[in-house]
């Protein structure tokens, strides 16, 4: 495998890891505050649809982005209502919202565009354009570092850089601010936070809504990357993001590593199909299943233990 192929592989790794990273950070905020969210998939899907549809209507990717975030926030709000206000089962709510998103997106796109559940192609200003970083073309000739800068680091859409910047931003917000401390405390011991006179409900809603915004970004990114919305286009990425979250043990920097790893596996599966190692062949299905298998192994605690936030999944009851 030559250097150019490696650069290409890593480049597509970054592209494929970005939606995972956004969704994974989304899940991180929600779950760190004690709200399980298996509805990442649904939120990404409805955001992808809304952003594609409104980008088609308006011709502007930014209007699309806002619509995507709004749609995702709507589902987040329902999830918050169900799991915070009405103390329902958070897992069941997540499952329900995934179905709702899966059905509504096809129903609405069929009725708005009549193209069998997809939107028209996004062109020009309806898509995020690739950003060429300064001097990218000038340094391309420099051996090794030139292609890395020009082809790997430069030339992505804005959301890729946003996603990467969100990793330190999330780490800072969670570990160095008062809000972050309270958010993490609400996920571990909500009664203590309540005793300190801070509203558990407000913090949890804030976390769920942050989750909605980030899933909105992830969905808009997917729609822009594929230049259209297609039915079930998230294709299980919400669940992979969930797997990455566990793999990352609910920590932002680990989340980046986990998402890059899973993005890389995806890139390998797309590029190589079956990998012939001479002795035996690794089937493409194995590469595709590897993120899930790795997550189960991590969950089982055989290789490092993943311990979820202690109050995760439990509604907080102020008085008994």
């Amino acid at each position: 495998m030559d250097f150019a192929t490696i650069i290409q592989m890593l480049d597509s790794t970054v592209r494929l890891a970005t939606p995972l990273l956004l969704a994974c950070l989304a899940g991180l905020f929600s779950e760190r505050a004690g709200i399980f969210d298996i509805g990442l998939e649904g939120k990404m899907l409805i955001a992808a649809f809304a952003s594609a549809a409104f980008a088609v209507f308006s011709g502007s990717v930014w209007v699309g982005l806002l619509a995507g975030i709004a749609a995702s926030l709507m589902l987040s709000f329902i999830h918050g209502m169900a799991s915070i206000t009405f103390r329902g089962n958070q897992l069941i709510s997540g499952v329900a919202l995934n179905f709702l998103a899966s059905g509504l997106t096809v129903l609405l796109s069929q009725s708005w565009f009549g193209l069998g559940g997809r939107t028209p192609s996004l062109e020009g200003a309806a898509r995020f354009s690739e950003i060429t970083l300064p001097f990218a073309d000038a340094v391309r000739g420099v051996p090794v570092l030139g292609p890395i800068y020009a082809d790997l680091i430069s030339g992505h859409t804005i959301l890729v850089y946003v996603a990467l910047a969100l990793v330190p931003a999330s780490a800072w917000l969670l570990y160095s601010t008062r809000f972050g401390l309270r958010l993490r405390a609400v996920g571990e011991n909500p009664a203590a936070v309540d005793t300190a006179g801070v509203s558990v409900v407000a913090i949890r809603y804030a976390a769920v809504l942050i989750c909605g915004v980030l899933c909105g970004l992830a969905g808009a990114y997917l729609a822009s990357l594929a230049a259209q919305f297609g039915r079930e286009m998230t294709a299980g990425r919400g669940y992979i993001a969930l797997a990455a979250l566990i793999f990352a043990k609910w920590r932002p920097w680990y989340a980046l590593t986990a998402c890059l790893l899973f993005g890389f596996l995806d890139a390998v599966a797309i590029r190589f199909q079956n990998i012939d190692l001479g002795v035996f062949v690794i089937p493409v299905q194995f590469t595709q299943a590897l993120p899930y298998i790795l997550t189960v192994v991590i969950l089982a605690g055989f290789v490092g233990k993943a311990i979820p936030p202690r109050a995760g999944g439990e509604p907080y009851v102020k008085e008994r």
Partner: peptide, 18 residues
């Protein structure tokens, strides 16, 4: 896909928003 929507709503109202 209308059925998927109904299914989601049934799960939501009987399960999470019970």
């Amino acid at each position: 896909e209308l059925i998927t929507v109904i299914q989601g709503l049934v799960i939501l109202f009987t399960g999470a928003l019970g």
